[in-house]
Amino acid sequence: MIKFSKAIQAGVLACALAASAASHAADVTIGALFPMSGPNASYGDIFGSGANLAAEHINADNLLGGKLSIQYEDSQALPQQGVIGMNKLVNVQKVPYVLSAFTGVSKAISTIASRTKTVAVNGGGVGPDLAELGPYFWNIIPLANYEVRAIIPYLVNERKMKNFVLVYIDDPLGQAIRKEMESALPAAGGKLVEALSVPATAQQFGGIAARVRAANPDVIYIASYGSQQSQIVKQFRDNGIKQQFASYTAFSIPEINAQPEAAGSLYTSQNIDWNSQDPVTKRFVDDYKKKYNKMPTAYIANYYNAVRMFGLLAQQLVKKGQPVTGENLLKQRIETKTFDLVGGKVTFAENGTVTMPMQINEIDGKGGKVVSAAAK
């Protein structure tokens, strides 16, 4: 039997209790496909903490006139498991809206979302081709092309690093980042001297480390996630590699931030002012800190925003007397255009993807620090 992480367990229980307290016609369940077991389970815990807090706020505000609950299914960050979970959410639970994560999982479930007119919202995967999965697939996170384009000029111009080695996971995310780097680096005055792929299940990187040493780059960009990225960092340092590490939002997880070998690594994320007095952002930050005794991260804000956006859309449908279906949610999103979310007002492009200012962070063992804000 799959064991849910503590945050997910708490969220499921809280939402179930809230839902059982009132059997109003406006009660509604949405779904979430997160990894809750396997090497990427820590992401499920992180994503779920943001989603659960948003559901609590929606229910506390009585935004829907009934209670919102979240049904979680374990994707294990694997496309096949994601499809199994998506089919259960759509065909058994009949949810109109599903939270998705990871590029491979998101691509695998997008055809089901399109066929059944179920909205799927990604807040974790960053493959650029996630912008091309149809009207029912939305991205509430800036995609990898924006992340790569933000960090390359900074590394080349500010840090004077010209020669790059890319170590990338051999899946849709890694392949997309390689394609973007091959395009963006020459234009910025940099050079991709080596691109080394690793299988998704790999955990031993001595051979790859030898090739990196031979290439002798200025910077090593790691396009991986979960326990694999931690092992790459540790084993490279153990093999005497001292060059700068760089990555994308996946480096924001606590395991990497606490890893001594990762100190000094640079990574991109969307730019959010955690000290903003904007009511939505302030409430989110204050309540998250109160509940978890730590600051939130961009991933947590993304999934809070994904659930909050559902609440705002569903509220409008309830006011109009329309059923909360995926088709109606899509129409309402197009009509509404702009949403008050954590970080400020967010507008969606026609393809259902947001663009946001980026920032570059440095791992310092104390939760990280911003070294370049609002990078483009």
Rank of each mutant, 00 (worst) to 15 (best):
Gln175Glu: 12
Ser197Arg: 11
Ala188Lys: 10
Lys107Phe: 07
Gly226Met: 05
Ile112His: 08
Arg115Phe: 08
Ser183Thr: 15
Arg237Pro: 10
Asp171Met: 15
Phe205Thr: 04
Ala131His: 06
Gly189Ser: 01
Leu155Lys: 00
Arg159Cys: 04
Asn139Phe: 04
Val167Gln: 00
Pro199Asp: 10
Asn139Gln: 07
Phe137Ser: 13
Ser110Pro: 08
Tyr225Phe: 14
Ile177Glu: 10
Ser183Trp: 12
Thr118Val: 14
Arg237Thr: 09
Ile169Phe: 15
Ala120Met: 13
Ile169Tyr: 14
Ile140Ser: 01
Ile152Glu: 04
Tyr136Glu: 11
Gly226Tyr: 05
Glu132Asp: 12
Arg115Asn: 10
Glu132Asn: 10
Leu130Asp: 01
Gly189Cys: 06
Glu180Pro: 00
Gln235Tyr: 10
Ile208Lys: 08
Leu133Gln: 12
Thr111Val: 14
Tyr136His: 13
Arg178Thr: 07
Ile140Val: 05
Gly206Ile: 10
Arg159Ile: 10
Ala150His: 02
Ala150Thr: 08
Gly174Gln: 04
Val156Tyr: 03
Ile109Gly: 04
Phe164Tyr: 02
Ala120Tyr: 13
Phe137Glu: 09
Val165Thr: 06
Val167Glu: 00
Gln175Asp: 03
Ser106Tyr: 12
Asn157His: 11
Ala108Glu: 04
Ile141Val: 15
Lys179Thr: 15
Asp238Gly: 15
Tyr221Ala: 11
Gln235Val: 09
Val126Lys: 11
Met181Glu: 03
Ala223His: 12
Leu143Arg: 04
